[in-house]
Simulated assay, not measured.
Amino acid sequence: MTAQEPTLKSQYAEKVTADLALNTAEQERIRKEIVSLQENLTGLEQDHELLVGMRAAIGDTPTAVPAPRTGRKTATSARKPAAAKSATTADTKKATAKKATAKKATAVKTVAKKPAAKKPVAEKAAAAKEKPVPLTELIHQHLSGQAEPKTAREIAQALTTAYPDRNLSDNLVRTTTERLVARSLAERAKQGSTVYYTAIQHNTPAAEAPAAVPAQTENAPVATTA
């Protein structure tokens, strides 16, 4: 038994060490998944704000019908039958209801079109440090600076080189780039079994993108199938 004690102790020590290594690796994997999910959530929130603004912009606003003026009673109106008075009252109520509805719709449309208050430069700088640049913007910046179409893997490798602190998988980059295609900020072209992406430039502020990722940070990856 005495000769076996060191052996058993070493076996337990090795097992505990292996379990600790697995635990640490699992924690790191989960952290990376959280970062990836946060990227997707940020993109969906931006799409939601864009769609809400578009819906408010194209919504039909009822035409306001002015209510009849009150306080001027003539001898002729005093002699109207009770049925005519009831009809006038009903018309007045309808006009008032339409006017209230028109005011509400106008207020909602005004709020949707009202530009956000400008933040001071210091607050903008602090917000930029706290909140990372959305992946959709990074991809659009990179594609805007490329002379040739790029695959999702090429984009992912270039952005990983430029931003090593962000966990960018090929699948995440492909999904986000397809979101740009859906928003008419990029276009896709398929050659054989390989899909290439190209940025689309617009004159609207929402589609303008800053300078692209420097070309020297790319690793010149080989095009792969999407």
Rank of each mutant, 00 (worst) to 15 (best):
T92H: 05
S86A: 15
E33W: 03
A212D: 07
I200V: 00
K98N: 14
V173N: 03
A83K: 04
R166P: 08
Q157V: 15
A21C: 10
R179W: 02
E39D: 08
A25W: 06
P66R: 10
R55T: 14
I30Q: 06
M54L: 14
P214W: 06
A90H: 12
P221N: 04
V195Q: 12
L143Q: 04
P120H: 10
P120Q: 08
R153A: 12
A215V: 11
T225H: 12
Q216C: 01
E39Q: 10
A182G: 13
S169K: 02
V121W: 15
T136L: 07
T88Q: 11
D19A: 11
A107I: 13
A102E: 03
K118V: 13
A226L: 05
A206R: 06
T89S: 04
Y12Q: 15
V222D: 15
A147S: 14
S86R: 13
R29H: 05
T177C: 05
K129D: 06
K93I: 02
Q4R: 11
T76E: 08
E178Y: 09
T175I: 11
K98G: 08
Y163H: 01
G59K: 05
R188N: 11
V52S: 15
K85F: 04
K15V: 10
A125F: 02
A127W: 01
V65E: 04
L168T: 03
T76M: 01
D165C: 04
R179H: 03
L51M: 13
P115L: 00
E14S: 02
P205R: 02
L180Y: 01
A13V: 05
A182C: 13
T194Q: 03
Q27N: 14
K119T: 13
E208T: 14
G59R: 07
D165I: 03
P214G: 00
S169M: 10
T101K: 03
Q157L: 00
L20W: 12
L180P: 08
K9A: 10
A21T: 15
P81L: 06
R72C: 11
E45S: 02
H48I: 13
A207P: 01
A212G: 11
L20Q: 14
I34E: 05
A125K: 12
E123W: 06
T175S: 14
A207L: 02
E49Y: 12
R55L: 12
L138T: 05
T88H: 12
V111F: 09
K99G: 05
A211Q: 14
T160F: 04
A100P: 05
A75D: 07
T92D: 10
E154F: 07
A83N: 10
K124L: 10
A125H: 07
R174M: 11
P149I: 07
K15F: 08
S77A: 08
